[in-house]
Nucleic acid binder design. Sequence first.
RNA 1: CGGGAUGUAGCGCAGCCCGGUAGCGCGCUUCGUUCGGGACGAAGAAGUCGCCGGUUCAAAUCCGGCCAUCCCGACCA
Length: 576
Amino acid sequence: MRFSQAFIPTLKEKPAEAEIPSHTLMIRSGMLRKLGSGIYSYLPLAKKVINYIETIVREELNAIGCQEILMPVLHPRELWEMSGRWNVYGPELMRLTDRHDREFALGPTHEEVITLIAKYDIKSYKQLPINLYQIQTKFRDEIRPRFGVMRSREFIMKDAYSFHKDKKSLKKTYDDMYKAYSRIFARCGLKSVAVEADVGAIGGSSSHEFMVLAETGESEVLHCKCGYAANLENAKITALDCNEHEEMKQLEKVSTPDRKSVEEVSAFLGVLPKKLIKTIVYKAGDNFVAILIRGDREINPVKVANFLQCVNLEFATEDEIAEFTKSTAGFVGPVGKKNIKIYADLNLKGTKNMITGVDEKDYHYRNVNLERDVHIDAWQDFIQAENGDKCPRCGKAMSSFRGIEVGQIFQLGDKYSTAMEATYDAENGSAVPYQMGCYGIGITRTMAASIEQFHDKDGIIWPISISPYDVELINLSPSDEDITEFCDNVYELLQDEFIDVLYDDRDEKAGFKFKDADLIGIPIHIIVGKKNFENEMVEIKIRKTGEKTTCAFDDILNKISSLIDTLYEEIDKNVT
RNA sequence: CGGGAUGUAGCGCAGCCCGGUAGCGCGCUUCGUUCGGGACGAAGAAGUCGCCGGUUCAAAUCCGGCCAUCCCGACCA
């Protein structure tokens, strides 16, 4: 493509709307334009990247026996009522009404549609397993779209769904998909990690998220050298140190005037925050529960919600605390409490002589021993893991990193097939709901994640496997007929070898073209200028390293081919 | 939805407090000079000042309402 003919509207200045590098650079490099909050147009450079990512995805999925289909974006309300999700999915479901007042959703995901397809056309165990996927625009009415295409309301997603006669077959496909996903992100040139993820309300037995490592990632991940990695909200906690060897002392009520917070109380009583027990009152549906955790730790609401099997978990208000627990916010305590369920974090088991509220303003108890003084309805892991916590597998300290979630895989089980009465006939003739798996990759988010992972102060650095072009050919002297004729020939030569070239033939100054080339981030630049031309040489620059070498005219094709091979080899060595 | 901010030419911004002529930089068009890291000069095109209403002789500017966008939070099967 000649740059003079290409639609690549680059910008010199940082757009006001963008905050993070990928968003800024996609706009500046002429890839992306905004239509509304969380709604974007993808211009030619972006579309080419999307195509390359999609091609890798298709190749890897087809290789493990997946088949591509295309399902509707528009979903009738009745379909979503079959699964019960018309009401459950909530305001994130983009809804609309047609001229006949019939209601529809714009598909945020396609479990319902695919399950319906299976229900009618996959009738025998002989047809199983089967794995179907599509690449399509998805709609989610995000409460707050953010960071360009990172969290947008309309985005391109690959979604796959597998159907099985039993869990064993599901597990096999799940493992195949896990490997395929690892290969896909590696082939895209990205450093990614699979982490244990929360299955949450979707149910099922197992789920992994694939995270691309990047400082600006929205998710925090804890990982261990032994290979364990988990989303922070899902990371299990192993035993924290506790003071179990102390002798139990007599319960003692002490005055703590106006000291409410852990910091205030621990400072006032001269003890470490971990000697305190926080009593947190939640409203779970119509019930109130108290959760006890150590004073120096934060509660993990995801763990609480999963334990309680509750979708709408909220903190109790001060008024609700007063009414339903007969207590005072800031001084709530578990001792003697009988009217609500009390659940304690596992790390409190065995602790001795702790400090809690008294349910009375301005007083706390010293020397609370939960097993002696409180009726605990259940012990459970409730707290948020932190950097430095011990690995639940090997016990060594874990460290944290930030990442961007680019894919997630689930073993769904029979949740949707049962809800929608989608069954196959087994060997013995009985109708059995399918075991299902579902598997997503955010295509447009993967593109943004690549930029987050690979950029510098000058612009984007594309991995060659998803770069919009392999090579940018820069003619520094477009007014010079000899040089221009030479560049035209190089352009032809490379194209004849199926090397995808962006040819900057514009009548602009050298600096202008260099800036644009660095911004756009094509991995290899061929620079043709007067001085080198007189010596029958061109300059070759590697965008990633900034390294520049010269190359004789005769050697250009060889040199470029071998550079491209090298760049691919660097990527392929990480593909397992 | 709570908190904060912004809306003026394609982009980035000033002007608003203190009402009266709409301005700067980039980009765009034309011409000339320049030509290896976002050149210079000259000429030019381009704006219902987010929308609606109010106050006023007069509103980008003051007042009210609405809309949109961005950031923090809640949220993210």
